[in-house]
Every structure is written in C-alpha cells, then in structure tokens.
C-alpha cells in the first residue's frame, strides 16, 4: 500500500476545494493540524475520517463523516465553513474569521460510534433474561441501521446509492428536496 503522506492529504484537499469552489482554512497552523488529523485517521481506519468527529471504525457507519463529509456542503452554504472549518467559502477565507458551526450530523448516526458495545450488549442481555419490557430511555435508542437505497436528482439526473440523499446535489447544487428514491425490485428466477 502506498504510504499516506501529508503532501498527498494536502493535495487531495486542495483539489477537492478547487472542484467545489471552496477554500481551505486560511490559518496555516490550523490547516497543518487538520491535515495531520486526517492522515492519522486514514492510517488508523483506512479512510480519511473527519478529524473532529468520533469514528465507529466501521466503514458503513462512518461513511457520512469521511472527509469531505456529507454535511460540508450544507454547512458551507449556511455558515461559510464546514463543521471542522477545514473547508470555507471565499468570504470566510478573506475575512480570516472562522464561524462557529454546530453539529448537523443526526444524533442517531453519532450514536453509531458508541453503539456496537452498548446497544449490542443490552439487546443480548435482554433477550437472555427475557425480562419484561420497560419504557426505553431516549439515550438508549438503537442507532440507525445503514439501509442503502438509490436516489436520483430530479433536476440533473445524478444517481447515488446511499442511506440518505445528499443535502445538496454535488453536480447541479439542487437541494435535498429535489431527490427522489428509485424504487428497485429484484426478481430471482429459478
């Protein structure tokens, strides 16, 4: 496997920023730290997980927070920067004033990073003891499963196979509301 270098991580981020019309954070020391965090995560998990979020280590569970994450485009559109503030828009880049960006990732997806041990064991224990069901605590809610579906952008036809449609179409910038599910049916014969 090719060694992951800081230069490789930097060039990839720069290329992605250029493609989407973004800028990388204007503070050189911060930028260096972001790239180092991404490098560590790529070496640790095998994919460049967001350095500001906790991984589950399971690719399917972490898919939405692999940098650039699913939340970057709506966050840059709303706040001028992504959650980490690695990617920023031109205004933020020029002002050098980084905004506060709240976490957009839904809580049930965040739970995936803690879930494997906790809710897995709870379920097994409950099944073994066959104890009567109690009112579930909100924080003990099972994290959402990954159920991939096909989605298409009604504006440009872009098709994506993910659990949720993108917040913003990466091709034509249409909003999530313009995505519709493609109902697929597989028939097995014989």
């Amino acid at each position: 496997m090719t060694a992951i270098t800081l230069d490789y991580v930097r060039k990839r981020a720069e290329a992605d920023a250029k493609t989407y019309g973004y800028y990388l954070t204007p503070q050189p020391d911060l930028l260096q730290s972001f790239l180092e965090g991404l490098k560590v995560n790529e070496e640790r998990y095998g994919y460049p997980l967001c350095p500001c979020r906790l991984a589950s280590g399971n690719f399917d569970y972490d898919r939405d927070i692999i940098c650039p994450c699913d939340y970057r485009d709506p966050d840059v559109a709303e706040y001028g920067a992504c959650y980490c503030r690695l990617y920023v828009n031109k205004t933020v880049y020029e002002s050098k004033q980084l905004p506060d960006v709240p976490e957009r990732r839904p809580l049930e997806k965040q739970m995936r990073a803690y879930g494997a041990a906790a809710w897995g064991k709870e379920e097994k224990a409950e099944a073994a003891a066959e104890k009567p069901t109690e009112a579930p605590k909100p924080e003990a809610k099972k994290p959402s499963e990954v159920k991939r579906k096909l989605w298409y952008c009604k504006q440009c036809g872009y098709v994506v196979f993910r659990d949720d449609p993108p917040y913003i179409c990466p091709i034509c910038k249409a909003k999530r509301e313009l995505f519709a599910e493609i109902e697929s049916k597989i028939e097995y014969n014989g």
Binding site: L54, E103, Q110
Partner: peptide, 24 residues
Amino acid sequence: DLCDEKDKQKIHQTILNKGGSISY
C-alpha cells in the same frame, strides 16, 4: 478516540447526563 468501547459508552452517558451534546 483512543479509549476502548466500554469507556466510550461511559463517556457518552456522562456527557449526555450532564445535558451536553456529544461533540468534541
């Protein structure tokens, strides 16, 4: 991120019980 799963779960509960959100 360097903790084992058991500790991650404890930390998660601690933060939520104090009314925080699980961001770092």
